[in-house]
């Protein structure tokens, strides 16, 4: 079955007909040529498809496109956070770069969550931008090059 959806992607309104089986990730990449979000595992385990959906970080590989008609999607390409991009560069927070768009969206969402006072599994009292908080909150984003040390430093610097 086909359905027509309209979504705002990185500030641009896009209308596209999708099969109901299409994930938001596939709709973005294959139908709308928005290739910033990456397909890693396609099972919600790696985080490389992370986008901001109506302001929150989610996994676009586990969202059905048809269920998000009218939504606002922000990918790493449209992320309004140059500071985060700079600190990723400055801290060697990537090697091959494949997971990076997901890391950036996840980091942006995570910093907002922290600002809103959301707790994490390692929070004791009020959450702070400590390395252990960043590690726990970014646990859903894998980096097979192992740039984690740089990623933590980059997010800590950007969040200051």
């Amino acid at each position: 079955m086909e359905a027509t959806i309209t979504i705002t992607v990185d500030g641009r309104q896009r209308t596209v007909a999708v099969d109901t089986r299409t994930t938001l990730l596939d709709a973005l990449r294959d139908r709308l040529a928005v290739t910033a979000p990456k397909k890693g595992c396609d099972h919600g385990q790696c985080g490389s498809c992370t986008v901001l959906l109506d302001g929150r970080r989610v996994l676009s590989c586990l969202a059905l496109a048809v269920a998000h008609d009218g939504a606002e999607v922000v990918t790493a390409a449209g992320l309004d956070n140059d500071r985060l991009r700079e600190t990723f560069l400055d801290n060697d927070a990537f090697q091959c770069g494949y997971c990076t768009p997901g890391q950036l969206c996840s980091a942006a969402g995570m910093l907002d969550e922290l600002k809103a006072g959301w707790p994490s599994a390692v929070t004791d009292g009020e959450p702070t931008l400590s390395a252990s908080e960043i590690r726990e909150r970014m646990a859903g984003n894998l980096c097979r090059c192992g740039a984690y040390v740089g990623i933590v430093a980059a997010i800590q610097e950007a969040g200051r």
Binding site: G47, V58, L62, G109, M110, A121, A139, G140
Partner: peptide, 16 residues
């Protein structure tokens, strides 16, 4: 309850 929820999944999954 808060602790159990935060012990599960990842930030992205908990948002969904």
């Amino acid at each position: 309850l808060s602790q159990a929820l935060l012990a599960g999944a990842s930030g992205q999954l908990r948002n969904m």
